[in-house]
Design a protein around this nucleic acid. Sequence first.
DNA 1: AATTGGCACTCCAGTCATGCGAGTGCCAGC
DNA 2: GCTGGCACTCGCATGACTGGAGTGCCAATT
Lengths: 346, 346
Amino acid sequence: MVSERGLQVLRAIVQDYVDTREPVGSKAIVERHAFGVSAATIRNDMALLEDEELIVAPHTSSGRVPTDKGYRVFVDHLAELRPLSPGQRAAIASFLDGSGDLDDVLVRTVRALTQLTGQVAIVQYPSFARANVTHVELVQLGGGRMLVIVVTDTGRVSQRLTFVGEDFDDADLARIRAGLGTLLVGRPVREGLQRIAERLEGPDAQAPAHERATDEIVRAVAEELEEFRQDKLVMAGSANLARRESDFRGSIYPLLEAIEEQVTLLRLMGEMVADEHGLSASIGRENDAFGLGEASVVASDYDATGSLARVGVLGPTRMDYPTNLATVRAVARYLTRMLEQDDSSR
Amino acid sequence: MVSERGLQVLRAIVQDYVDTREPVGSKAIVERHAFGVSAATIRNDMALLEDEELIVAPHTSSGRVPTDKGYRVFVDHLAELRPLSPGQRAAIASFLDGSGDLDDVLVRTVRALTQLTGQVAIVQYPSFARANVTHVELVQLGGGRMLVIVVTDTGRVSQRLTFVGEDFDDADLARIRAGLGTLLVGRPVREGLQRIAERLEGPDAQAPAHERATDEIVRAVAEELEEFRQDKLVMAGSANLARRESDFRGSIYPLLEAIEEQVTLLRLMGEMVADEHGLSASIGRENDAFGLGEASVVASDYDATGSLARVGVLGPTRMDYPTNLATVRAVARYLTRMLEQDDSSR
DNA sequence: AATTGGCACTCCAGTCATGCGAGTGCCAGC
DNA sequence: GCTGGCACTCGCATGACTGGAGTGCCAATT
């Protein structure tokens, strides 16, 4: 239906519209792009593109604006990701380099990304469901309070304070600790949760004297594992939404809400389908189900020592997809490499 | 200068303006409030109020709007805090009741507050500078990695993963742990930091064999203490800013930025001066230095087992001060009580 | 068959004039 | 010190008009 040149016209419209924020007309296209044909010809192509619902005219006689479908075609078939400039690569490196635990690295990642793109940046924590428990530690604080610590091989540490109602002597504590160790250490989080559930149903005869207290400890461990299983996000740059306010027809309220909720964004990020390079985009009304019909998300998978997660940006539908895709990809790669290094140094 | 009735007129103007978002004229005042005098009389009073810069007319002939100075006089002399309704009290209770560690309680507090006021809610962590260290725990994870945990008597737990480069045998580890214990346990965070600084200058002869590794551990502890010393915030409800967008003349960008930065808000909250009831307000241009000239903060002190901190809301200058003050105070009181209870149960 | 120049047409955005209404300031009188 | 009255000032909405940008279509050209 749409000719090859027609697609080039679509590309030109998307590029110019993202550039200027103004509907783009046939004359503007022949001026800014060397098509070698006249404005009337472009007009004919534009009529076809409009038939295909790739572009629309806001008013009877004004330039054209890409539809969500138009952006989709652009992203899938027309966008060429320019590699980042050396300066941008240096910026990523200077942001991300330096040691620190997982939390630290992800916070720095998200800052780098919001800085580079001027959008809201989002980083998913690596999915911990597959992570393995490496340590369970119990620290008595006196007065019946117990600090319960769980560590996984993905480098995440979780601690929880719980009131168990009594203090144990060292031997009992060591026994409980050992029991939890054999129950959990070396096993994936998901499996650990199952084993704990079983244990809570058929009470163990191991420490009947302190049964209630140990149950309390086990419950605390279970809560921590459960927290690992839920995915988590780090975000930055929400203020950018206000800066590009004009890009959102309606209010930015739903966006800020989604950012605060996190759950919505987690679902959205989770449901996106990546291409063969690990890149994915969800455009405009495709996000209607999440109340984000005026926004787009562009993301790239990254590899946190075996478990996959995503890093992406959230912005107006009218965003610079090629640049954002390229940036997100570069950051994801750098992040993957950093986590590998970190792992090998251990 | 301004008569008693003049102040009542100011109160009426503030109330009506907050209600209607429209400049309020003399006629509207005599209609809505039973002053028992005519509109012309009110007009004379309004002229005086305008001389005092407590109100202004946006245009030559439109109703009046309170100035920041007007709001200040209103808050200081005219506002009567209505006690909350039983329903609202119940809402606070249902939000806050239930156990959990400090993080948990503060998150629930901030949610309750944003829910009740429809503003951005902010809760300061109790200042940890005066808190005492109760435990220092070291957990070896193998491969030269060490988990360093510090606990204070205010219930806060901090953990940090650090790479020390070697594994200790149990005896050495116990010795280091004991050393840190005598150095820090039972002492305030601030003092602990000093002692560590001294120790790092004049190296201890205690464990020369592992000097570098122990230094690394000590450094990690110092970082954690430093983190305690910095105050911290929990916030919720930033999406509310977008809902009342119309209340902000300019963009909400600086507000969102301050929320993301936290540092700005920490300084602002810290510098506010409370009255004898622990209530404080910072209005409009008084916040210019923080880039928040169109916003107000209303806060109440609360008592976290001895160390004072604040809970407040951030919103447009044109906010309902009496209601927000009353809500903030009620939440602060409830929070104080909860933390006391929690403490006594330990 | 594709491209082009030309032309009539549509609609937006800005400008100006007009009228209305709300609200003020001031003054003379009570 | 309060009040009613009155002239005055603006803001705002309305409507008419214009210029300009951009389209759609058609007949002519390659």
